[in-house]
Simulated scan of single mutants.
Amino acid sequence: MSMISITLNSGYSMPILGLCTYLADNKATIFKLIETALMEGYRAFDSGTDKNEEIVGEALEIFLPKFKLKREDIFMISKLGIILDVYTPNILSSNYIDDCLHRLRLKYVDLYVIHPPSNSSPKNSDSEEMKTLLAIWKSLAVAVKEGKIRSLGVSNFNKTQLETMFNFDNLAKFPPASMTPSVNQISFHPRLFRNDIVEYCHSHGAQVQAMISLDSPACRDLLLDKTLLRLGKNYSKTTDQILLRWALQRGLMIMLKYFAYSKPMIDSNINIFDFEITASDMQIIDSLNK
């Protein structure tokens, strides 16, 4: 199947559904995940961390030719972890992104994502944390100008932090093109219904990507909910597919995270584009928010 894509505010297209290898902890699992995902039609991949980027890069180098795909056929996401002071001199170095590209065996990444400076919610852009974040973001903007990064994104930013980032051009006075976030990756499911963040991002031209671990304990518990089981039976779909379709119809893109390799799960979770949940059933799923 041909994967549906959305055009980001950077002008580049991003597949609406992807796979993250962050939770995979060994080479064999990552290779199986990427090979099966490419075979089934996934075209977006998120390394999640630099700890497995070398393996991801090797897997893509092997399996893209196997399925007659080229670099431009996939959308590769990399990210910086939680921003602490120790990151500042590293990310401000021009070699930081070069090292990332070397590990992935790529000339550019399609999206580079950063986490918030801390779990706190700074009152304004003058806080030391936000100054650090803006300095890092500005260095990433240079990498965008150099063609090493195509789009920039954030992960789990709250509204206060997002406000600062959406005002980046004015704060940093960085010409010529806008360097505001294209994507905000967040945890999102019926029991963590963060529609305020979604609406805020969309109002500023940014997309929201739901990071979903269907085989995590929290989601497995949710997927055993009687309401979702009943809806799955009504639509002849798995509860996994119901949950993913619900997120799509809420206007989100999806990045699936797996603890372990599961070919049936990878196969079935891409088949969410051949049905639509009714408005009344969407409201039923919304009501699971606790």
Rank of each mutant, 00 (worst) to 15 (best):
L133F: 06
N156G: 09
V142Y: 01
R150Y: 15
S127C: 08
P116W: 00
V144L: 08
G153P: 04
N156Y: 14
V142C: 07
S139C: 12
K138Q: 13
S121M: 09
T132V: 13
A143Y: 00
V142W: 05
M130C: 03
E146N: 14
E129D: 15
D126S: 11
A143E: 08
K145D: 15
D126G: 03
G153D: 06
M130S: 01
P116Q: 05
K145R: 15
K148F: 09
S120F: 11
F157R: 02
E129C: 09
S155P: 07
E128Y: 09
L134K: 05
T132Y: 09
M130P: 01
W137K: 05
S127V: 03
H115C: 07
A143H: 01
N119I: 14
A143D: 08
S151Y: 07
D126Y: 11
A135M: 13
K148M: 12
S151H: 08
L134F: 08
I136P: 01
L140M: 10
S155W: 04
N124C: 06
F157M: 12
M130Y: 02
S125Q: 08
G147M: 12
M130A: 02
P116R: 02
P117I: 09
K159S: 14
N156K: 14
L140V: 07
W137E: 00
V142L: 11
S155R: 03
V144Y: 10
S118V: 07
G147K: 07
H115G: 02
F157C: 05
S125W: 04
A141M: 07
E128A: 13
N158E: 15
F157N: 03
V142M: 09
N158V: 14
N119S: 13
A135V: 08
K138F: 08
S120H: 11
S151M: 07
L134W: 04
R150V: 12
